[in-house]
Design a protein around this nucleic acid. Sequence first.
DNA 1: CCACGTGGTTACATCGATGTAAATACCCTG
DNA 2: CAGGGTATTTACATCGATGTAACCACGTGG
Lengths: 338, 338
Amino acid sequence: MAARVRIKDVAAHAGVSPKTVSNVLNDYEHVAPATRAAVRESIEALGYRVNLAGRQLRRGRTGMITLAVPELDVAYFSELAKHVMTAAERRGCTVLLHQTDGRRDRELAALSGFEAQITDGVVLSALTLTARDLAERAPHLPVVLLGERHGDGTLDHVGIDNVAAAREATAHLLARGRRRIAVVGGALRGRQGTDRLRTLGYREALRAAGVPFDGELVVPVDAFHWLDGARAARALAERPEPPDALLCLNDHLALGAVRALYEYGLPVPGALDVVGFDDIEAARFTIPTISTIAPDKEGIARAAVDLLLDRIERPDRESGPSHHVAGYRLIVRESSGG
Amino acid sequence: MAARVRIKDVAAHAGVSPKTVSNVLNDYEHVAPATRAAVRESIEALGYRVNLAGRQLRRGRTGMITLAVPELDVAYFSELAKHVMTAAERRGCTVLLHQTDGRRDRELAALSGFEAQITDGVVLSALTLTARDLAERAPHLPVVLLGERHGDGTLDHVGIDNVAAAREATAHLLARGRRRIAVVGGALRGRQGTDRLRTLGYREALRAAGVPFDGELVVPVDAFHWLDGARAARALAERPEPPDALLCLNDHLALGAVRALYEYGLPVPGALDVVGFDDIEAARFTIPTISTIAPDKEGIARAAVDLLLDRIERPDRESGPSHHVAGYRLIVRESSGG
DNA sequence: CCACGTGGTTACATCGATGTAAATACCCTG
DNA sequence: CAGGGTATTTACATCGATGTAACCACGTGG
């Protein structure tokens, strides 16, 4: 703060005009080598650093993008954030992280609030927003959706094939002879989210195997943390007719469930099999290790950043929205006999 | 982008001067109620949003602070980040998250790079920087250090009493009759970090109990992830004279170690006791649950934000640096007989 | 020897919001 | 109703960097 050096100070020190300093800063080609050197020297001598507010004001770009996720302490999102930051850095921009807590107002804030203001675009992992919200709130803001395409799919979007992934995970459990498979975190209706699609895949797998669907086995949760998985598993364990396997819609739920079952004397994979989603680091090191659907997080991050930067660079481009489908693998570990 | 609304558009629409609109925006008191209402209406009608670049340029403040941590996918940091964001929001500012990967260049970047530029101050959890780096690189930048006070302690700092915490954890293991306690992630010399201090506390506890110190039991690690804990535990398990307890300098290490020991047929807490640090959510739900030192993360976050904002608001205040010592508790869980 | 082109440099306006200070409108007191 | 405030509004300059366009000094081709 104290005595900040401005471009004009550098200009004075080097005996040139401010604009010439600017030209040097921006690698404008027609600057005499001697001048360039002198300016560089003055910059060094005075410890000059560009003021980004000034630059942004003039240029209209910040070089920052927002990544808005529900919760950073859900490992999937912090791991994903890491990849997004890496991808962004490679493309020369910086990531501003915004946490929505899955709340509608905070998701809207990601689109029109502070972050959106100082940012050139948003990668949004939305839980509550509808297509209409998105269209209304930020008609001109470049946005890429993560997870699920919302509504009419008019926005760019990156995700895995959740239906297929859930189908595959369920088929795996069925192949192991499980018949009463609960879906922890599942949803039959309501928000148009990933949970709905995964539940759909689950039902498809049941149908394909000729196993009747039991709505009682779709267990909603408040959040996707260890605690919620433990709660859900407890409730299931106390039923007169407990399930023989759990399809948990993320690994935290799976891990919490495994612990709760353990407390009920129901070992995994002995008494029940458990499969999760996300392949967070924990899943590889717990007792037991957790079978899971492993999405290609790096691919997702890279695709999201690329798509967003494309939109930012060519906002006029009226080409329709892109939908990038990233890969995933089912990894069978101890929790389902691996 | 397309046809952005500026303050002067609102002014024209409302039939007042731009400055009056500005006054309404900033809740200047001497604005006639009718005028205020009219301006508000125009703002609404046109969908106006302030341009932060312009505002910042004029005001010299951004209302953003940087939080720089080594890794977001270390749960302690993502949980802490969550609290910092909450604390910052309560004080009306926004957090820009910067990941250093524990690399020196990226820690320096947090002080003088892009983020520091557009940010009013930095909360830094540094691994490699020295006091000199900090003084040289950012003499005028408000900074609060997390974790360990570096060097001469000339900067504001927030942390727990790591020596006491490690002493207490070690004493707990000793009280359970353990005598060969390894320190996973420990360090005898080198970086002036938290690891050094915790190792120091460990030694103090040994000395107090009259147990001889064995340098072989201080096991450094590459990083503080599950994988590194597992590796370290494996190496220890294969020694001719394995330890009978592990003091792991974070919970990830503890969890990874527990898993590796399990694979060696060394159950925790049967064969060895294990204690970690940080009390991440996982520690409460794994099998076994993990004893740990639980720092008051919320208190740390709040103190850091408060201290930083104080510095930002009163940069002239030449009062010496503040050192806030946050609380912690030893939570005994299954991994050490709880 | 002139017109013209090109490299190098600069004056000026501008991005959008706001602090300063001055202008205008309004109200009360005596 | 004049004088002296107070409330409200506004003109203008400014924050720092950069796009535009003009300028100067050469050198070259004709």
